[in-house]
Design a protein around this nucleic acid. Sequence first.
DNA 1: CTTAAATTAAAACGGTCGTTTGAATCAAAT
DNA 2: ATTTGATTCAAACGACCGTTTTAATTTAAG
Lengths: 216, 216
Amino acid sequence: MTVSNRAEQELNSGEVTRLKIMDAAESLIIQHGFAATSLRAIANAADVNLAATHYHFGSKQGLLESVFHRRMRPVGIARLGALSALESGKAALTVDAILKAFFMPFYDAEGSELLTILPGLVARIYAEPAVLTQPLLEKEFSQVASRFVAALQKTCPGVSEQEMRWRFHFMVGSMIQFLRFQAPMGLVNEADGFRDGLDRLVNYSVAGIEQLGVVE
Amino acid sequence: MTVSNRAEQELNSGEVTRLKIMDAAESLIIQHGFAATSLRAIANAADVNLAATHYHFGSKQGLLESVFHRRMRPVGIARLGALSALESGKAALTVDAILKAFFMPFYDAEGSELLTILPGLVARIYAEPAVLTQPLLEKEFSQVASRFVAALQKTCPGVSEQEMRWRFHFMVGSMIQFLRFQAPMGLVNEADGFRDGLDRLVNYSVAGIEQLGVVE
DNA sequence: CTTAAATTAAAACGGTCGTTTGAATCAAAT
DNA sequence: ATTTGATTCAAACGACCGTTTTAATTTAAG
């Protein structure tokens, strides 16, 4: 059997169990957080034996890392890809375009099941106690952040790298808030609510990063 | 014994225990989160019998609510007071001044021990699973938010209440991010780091809320 | 078919969890 | 001094935790 087209390839029993565990863990972790989600609850939701969690992931922490890694790596790749495409294009770089590249994974996920997962998972990474997730964040996110900060700096001459990293920091905070709660408290979101909120987030962030109106 | 000056009044045994428990719980919850903090760890850190936690707070959830309430009510009061003082003053309202009123509790806390507590606690409220803290947030925060949104709207004619609530939503996200991580990843914060970050947060948020430079 | 490896299964390990109980101790008022 | 209520204490409750062990079962290769 060749390794070529893995999409059509049938998964062996072990891989199927691995996926069932990760899916169940992902859903429960999003709902209740990492500490409050037990391996027994995960195994039960996945319809899998409890020991399978340790067989496939070694430990609860190992499962957490796998769950986060599976979703976050494609996000980072999509972001870097979108930014590279932007930089190699002929159009001039704008803050608006760069931020849309950063939010690309969420624009892309519209209409897919990913939209019910990605926001909750990203938000949870930032919500868990730092000792659990800081290594994951550092590993998966820091180089992506650096690339975007550098790109943003090019469009805002006169803004130091340090200052731009602060602004990027605040922008990420707004993004997390949006992913976590979607609309503000008491504001219901209608039909195409996610796209609407995302566009508002872009506008808000562009203003914050450019800071054209602020007088010192 | 009169009730007048409670500051000099000695606390009876029960109140002292209550405070010791809340102090210990606060510190541990900030460090490890609610689910990962056990009542035994709290009682141990407070040098108090385990059963005292249930005697004084009824349940773990009850303790959580008391811990949050104790710090958050003064924050809300300080914010509303600062905003009222602003509105009854003769100077024209500005977004900058309103936001500084909103951040007032953190400006005030500079140099006090509160600065080691408030940021971590506020950040944790937003980090815990929604089912735990959403009632607390709704109760303690929503009316304060409404007052500030209304004030901001007056300084930005043409911005609907709904739109301003979104911008305020994003601003809160940036604030949480700052309170939780202080400086961006990999950026160390020197001597007067907190004040510096707070000022950057104000500038960023003013730009986002006014959105002067954004072309649709 | 046989054999070896990969995977699943059931059961138990020692611990810790939130909560409850009932007696002991303390404080203040009669 | 005695009584009453508030508070503290040690101990235990049943339940659940992450992890490990051992054996059964399935899968794939010789």
